[in-house]
Computed example of a mutant assay.
Amino acid sequence: MSTAEPTPQQDGDEELNKAIEQLKDVLHEEAPRGTGSAEAGSANHDLIMGIPVEVQIVLGTAEMPVSQLMALKKGSTVSLNRRIGEPVEIVVNGRRIARGEITLVDDDPSRFGVKLTEIAGGE
């Protein structure tokens, strides 16, 4: 009987979950009582808060055969799986953390942003 090998995606998700739990532990652990403990906790918090993460806004996805992909040229249109007005996904390091709607940036109407409408696991 063979055992199923975890896929690279499962391995990546497992690593990400483990890292998130470790970060939560560091951020929420109570510093031991004594001299310098508040500074050490603050230093850990500042260190973690300075870690860069990749944030992506996913407007939609498309699936097509390689032949159709290879036929794309300048001016081609790729139909996405979302319709106008549907929420976009906010993804951090490959994991969806929120959904939102496209909006114009108030101080620069030539740019757009995303207004969060739903936080994953939030209320």
Rank of each mutant, 00 (worst) to 15 (best):
S110N: 09
N17E: 13
I97D: 04
T35I: 12
G12Y: 11
S79T: 13
L69D: 05
P32Q: 13
L59P: 01
V92N: 05
S79G: 05
V78W: 10
A19P: 01
E54Q: 10
L80N: 05
I97C: 03
R111N: 11
P8K: 09
D107E: 15
L47E: 13
N81Y: 07
E63A: 14
I97P: 00
D25N: 09
T35L: 12
R83L: 09
T61Q: 14
E86G: 01
S42H: 10
V78R: 07
V53Y: 09
S76V: 00
D13S: 04
H28Q: 13
P32R: 11
D108K: 10
L27V: 05
I51K: 02
G85T: 02
I90Y: 08
N81H: 06
H28R: 11
I84F: 12
S76E: 03
L104V: 15
V88D: 04
Q56T: 09
P109T: 14
A40P: 02
E123T: 07
R95Q: 13
E5D: 08
K24A: 12
L16M: 08
L23F: 09
E21S: 11
R96T: 15
G113K: 02
G85V: 02
R82A: 09
M1C: 04
P6D: 06
N44S: 15
E101R: 11
V78K: 03
R96E: 13
T117N: 05
M49G: 07
E15A: 07
I57R: 03
A98W: 02
D107C: 02
V88P: 06
T7Q: 08
S42V: 02
I90M: 12
G100H: 07
N44D: 13
V78E: 10
K115R: 15
P52S: 14
L80D: 08
A4G: 04
Q9L: 15
T103H: 04
E29A: 15
M49F: 10
R82Q: 10
Q68C: 01
A19N: 10
S42N: 12
G36F: 07
